[in-house]
Computed example of a mutant assay.
Amino acid sequence: MQRFQSILQFKKVSCKNCYKCVRNCPVKAIRVHDHQARIIESQCIYCEKCILVCPQDAKEEQNMIPAICNAMENKTQVIASLHPAYLARFGVTGINGIREAMKKLGFADAADAAEGASLMISQYRALFAEQKEPGIMISSACPVIVQLVKKHYPHLLGNLVQSASMMQFHASYLKKKYPKAEIVYVSPCISAMSELRDSGNEVDYVITLEELVQWMKKEGISIIEKEPEQIAYRSREIAIADGLTDLLGSVKGIRRLSVSGME
């Protein structure tokens, strides 16, 4: 399993003292010292807003691809778990084509994390059925929101739905299928890396979809769309706004309120 100290920082660059990152950080997790912006990771929720506004393109995130390649070279079975957002990023209708491309990279197999979303939804329903007076519950589907609650609203920790994430459910499922494998989660953003530090974590590495795109480009590998899938997971809706609440459906005694964004 990959070990690391910092998920996100800025490269050592000639900062323009524009303070755009400081002004746009929603949780005030950036300070400027000696003309260099620094992220305070104990406060950071990994939303990456600072990166979007930085004119220096100074993102420096944890790169786990070298460690993954090393595991492959050592004949370790490496399985990829792809967040359903891969469908939009690659413009495909299913996983068959990308599975073949990832095997060319050295992966033993690739699977849709929507499988994990189905397991997570089942866990949610079971938890709701157990609680007669659940009170206010906050969905923990997004790692950014989980970090926001943990680091800035700790008094609401008890309101987070006590369930593992889609990423963890899928990793657990894959490790039962491939007991000796190491799991790489392919995420639309870096926030999933925060879960690697949690107790009970079963994921070995996290990379972003953009990193995967660059990796394939470097190796000259392209995705060729295959025949339509036999099974399409409705749980892929977890990747869109209101997806989780729609997938939950009607739950007796529960009134749902879907919101987007940190505000």
Rank of each mutant, 00 (worst) to 15 (best):
E210K: 13
A113I: 09
D34F: 10
E130Q: 15
N74D: 15
L156A: 12
L248S: 10
E61Q: 11
S250C: 09
P84N: 08
A239E: 10
R125S: 12
C142Q: 05
Q123V: 05
Q62S: 06
E73F: 10
F128E: 02
C54E: 01
V13W: 00
P154D: 06
V27F: 05
A192S: 13
S140R: 14
Y153M: 11
I190M: 06
Q162F: 03
T76K: 14
T208P: 05
V149G: 04
R3H: 14
E229H: 03
S165C: 00
L87E: 07
Y124I: 11
K104C: 02
L119Q: 06
C50A: 03
S194D: 08
K16M: 12
N96W: 06
G243K: 08
G91C: 01
Y86E: 05
E225Y: 01
G158F: 10
E210P: 00
M64K: 02
I223H: 09
C47K: 04
E182G: 03
M262D: 14
D198F: 11
M72N: 06
V251C: 14
K226T: 12
E182M: 12
C54H: 02
Y205F: 15
E202S: 11
D242Y: 13
Y178G: 01
V146G: 02
I45S: 02
I240M: 09
N17Y: 02
I95R: 02
A117T: 09
G97P: 05
N96G: 11
M167E: 08
M216V: 05
N74L: 11
V22A: 00
S258P: 07
C21Q: 01
S260T: 13
K103L: 07
R234C: 01
L8Y: 07
E182K: 14
E210W: 00
N63I: 12
I68M: 07
S6T: 15
E100Y: 03
S118W: 00
S250I: 15
S118C: 05
R38M: 06
Y178I: 00
S165V: 00
Q168H: 08
Y178S: 02
E219Y: 08
A181S: 15
L209M: 06
E61V: 09
M1D: 13
A111G: 10
Q62P: 00
M193I: 13
K104M: 10
E41H: 03
K175F: 00
L105H: 04
I231G: 00
L212Q: 02
M137A: 10
S163V: 12
G135Q: 09
G116P: 07
L157S: 08
N96K: 11
I40K: 00
K28T: 12
G249H: 13
Y173V: 04
N74Y: 08
V78K: 04
S118Q: 13
N70M: 11
G106K: 12
V259C: 13
L8C: 05
V92E: 02
P134A: 14
I238T: 07
D34W: 09
Q214L: 13
L8T: 02
G253F: 09
K151T: 06
A80K: 06
N96R: 11
K177V: 03
D242Q: 14
L247W: 08
